[in-house]
């Protein structure tokens, strides 16, 4: 077990050994208890009645339809937020204009709103009491308690992810390369595809990863607008809630383990992207 202090080797200052060990053990125990144990609990509970029960809970029709719905919602919400994120960061970082700071604050807004409130605003907007809601009712268009509301609420909660990754990155890269391309006669689209996109690809991927993880895992906001119709408007997290409340714990944790695996894979990919992103940064600067 090595307990060296890499940066401190030359200077020879730092904590005495027992303080160092005590701090490391405290930190490890805390992380283990707060984060490691819940992670382990998901898989232990899911496999409590063996692998067969686990697989059976996942290929059960309601679970499968929840998986399909979650994939569908993410497949609509994530690309829309990618387009928005790129457009917003292009406008914000490549140009100087009045009201920029306000715009950035507004883009970040969904992060500071409680998930329940994020759902509530759409329940009010599309509910039968509102003008829009009664119009929709007259024309027999179902948005609330149906897939469209799930998609819109998901777009709301994942709204800032891509833009928030790209804005600082593109800010740092400046506009010189794009200006050179335009002055040499490249079209705007070509400049974007062959100059900007390669420069931002790792940051973009990072934002998309986080956006997707949240889109597939969102609970509070979709819970308000879903209506909890089994096999129809339940995403994976909602299906987990229903199974858990029915005391069907093995099934609840089995379905939850899919989301847990998604989270672990997201974190692993995030590490890879960070590593490559750091490498390309070093080469270009």
């Amino acid at each position: 077990m090595s307990l060296s202090i890499p940066q401190n080797k030359q200077s020879g200052i730092g904590e005495v050994l027992w303080v160092r060990i005590a701090l490391i053990i405290t930190g490890m125990l805390f992380l283990g208890a707060v984060i490691g144990l819940p992670l382990a609990a998901v898989f232990t509970e899911a496999l409590r009645k063996g692998l067969d029960a686990y697989v059976a809970s996942i290929i059960e029709p309601d679970a499968l339809s929840a998986i399909r719905l979650t994939l569908l919602v993410a497949a609509i919400a994530v690309p829309l937020n990618i387009v928005f994120g790129i457009a917003a960061s292009w406008a914000i970082t490549k140009f100087e204009f009045t009201g920029k700071r306000l715009l950035i604050t507004l883009i970040d807004l969904p992060f500071s709103v409680s998930p329940v409130i994020s759902g509530l605003i759409y329940a009010l907007m599309f509910g039968a009491q509102s003008l829009l809601g009664s119009w929709l009712l007259e024309h027999d268009i179902q948005i609330l308690f149906a897939v469209p509301a799930l998609v819109i609420a998901t777009i709301f909660v994942t709204f800032p992810f891509v833009a928030r990754e790209l804005i600082p990155l593109m800010e740092e890269q400046g506009t010189e390369e794009e200006e050179a391309a335009i002055l040499l006669g490249a079209s705007g689209w070509r400049t974007f595809v062959s100059i900007t996109l390669p420069n931002i690809r790792w940051g973009l991927l990072y934002g998309v990863l986080l956006c997707n993880a949240r889109a597939m895992g969102e609970f509070g906001a979709v819970s308000v607008v879903s209506g909890h119709i089994k096999g129809e408007t339940n995403t994976i997290p909602l299906q987990v809630e229903i199974l858990y409340n029915e005391y069907n714990f093995v099934a609840a944790f089995s379905v939850a383990s899919i989301l847990t695996l998604l989270a672990v894979v997201t974190l692993l990919l995030k590490r890879v992207v960070e590593k490559y992103g750091a490498k390309t940064k070093k080469i270009t600067t």
Binding site: L39, A41, V42, A213, G217, F253, A256
Partner: peptide, 11 residues
């Protein structure tokens, strides 16, 4: 950041 809140809740 990555684990859905409902999963954390039941765990």
């Amino acid at each position: 950041f990555a684990l859905p809140t409902a999963v954390a809740g039941i765990a």
